[in-house]
Design a binder for these strands. Structure first.
Lengths: 216, 216
DNA sequence: GTCTAGTTTGACCGAACGGTCAGACTCACG
DNA sequence: CGTGAGTCTGACCGTTCGGTCAAACTAGAC
């Protein structure tokens, strides 16, 4: 199970400490991969170190040799993931074509719901419970980024290149509609019944929805 | 805190047992009210009986006098809430005006996000983690209801009274967009900053969104 | 007032959990 | 092949949690 470590580098300690051993890199990767599985499926409180250790193929004390605590594993995951998660929003280009930029953002977020559902659920679990373990600074950084992009969208609207919509709620709607398919996957599949990937059906629907919403 | 018991009747035992005592009604109500608070804020696993008991103003053994287990409290909450939760969807009238019916459903769901955020988060917590404690039959009943209403919407589309959209994903989009404001309230408020109720801003946005989406 | 069914609680239990520790093992470099 | 830093583990600890129980304490019908 833990064989398919993906190449993303979660093992950033970068506190100026000495370079990581090969074994350290591998095992910290295994732990974070397992922790992502367990935390996203059961929430922070519902996850146990034994579960994580078992899924990582390590003993519990060995896991605690690489991370000082359960909290630390969770924090490392959140921190490492935040940049990836917000990258598509950052990529909105003020110089681009408005509707194209927003549609691209929406499509990229939908792709992420398909390809990184565990990451989506990890954040969802955290936010649902009031984000007690997510740095308050995170909310500050997030607000800064969103406000910046909202300004860009407002500019586009002022130029008449976009329908006049509240930019903040537009961004919320993209989050809500795309992450829904990752976070509530169980419900979506229960309703649609067995068959194709729900996101395949969602893609054209969301394309139409945002096309109609954004037309000036 | 537990003084404002709302009039909704959660205390349905109705297994044909003898009628409930006055004290039974009051205390079961207190427990379920407290449990809704605690479960919705921390998830099933994150909630503790001591927390629930404290918030209900009862001792832990006393709580377990009224409910056989933590699971039973959770199950009672879910069961009692499901009808309320799906009522607006059930209320969609095949004989009504299509766009009006759907807009009404959306608005009612948004209202519920404002007035019953704890209930929304209770379900969200459960579904996020794969709905392990929600009767599999629930998914069956839910599917049945959604399929029925999807057929109604398809009929409307066939008559050309509604834009041709996938009815299932239309329903998902209503769920996603409205429940987002309850489930991710923390994030929404962090981004918008302090001030008015986020849902006040969401209402006109969602009105415009669905008006544009549904126009034939 | 009495008596009983219904209610409440302090004390306690076993299991699960996060975390510790001393010592055993192993890898890589000279 | 020797050695020390780095890696790993079985046994254990204190706490928390869900749940039990016997005994004490009402509420209310007669």
């Amino acid at each position: 199970m833990a064989d398919d470590l993906d190449p993303r580098d979660f093992t950033s300690d970068d506190d100026g400490k000495r370079p990581l051993t090969r074994i350290q890199k591998v095992n910290r990767g295994k732990i974070l991969e397992a922790a992502l599985d367990v935390f996203s499926a059961h929430g922070f409180r519902g996850a146990t170190l034994d579960q994580i250790a078992a899924e990582a193929g390590l003993s519990k004390p060995n896991v605690l040799y690489y991370f000082p605590s359960k909290e630390a594993i969770h924090a490392a995951l959140l921190e490492g993931l935040l940049d990836i998660w917000l990258a598509p929003l950052r990529a909105i280009d003020p110089a681009g074509e408005p509707r194209e930029e927003i549609m691209r953002y929406m499509r990229r977020k939908l792709e992420m719901s398909r390809e990184m559902p565990r990451e989506s659920r990890l954040f969802a679990n955290e936010v649902l419970q009031g984000a007690p373990r997510m740095g308050a600074g995170l909310s500050t950084d997030l607000k800064t980024l969103v406000d910046e992009k909202a300004k860009v969208i407002e500019g586009w609207i002022a130029e008449g290149r976009l329908a006049p919509v509240d930019p903040h709620h537009l961004i919320f709607s993209i989050w809500a509609l795309t992450q829904h398919y990752a976070d509530f996957d169980t419900q979506v599949r229960a309703v649609l019944g067995p068959g194709k990937d729900p996101i395949e059906g969602a893609a054209p629907f969301l394309d139409m929805l945002f096309a109609r919403l954004l037309a000036p």
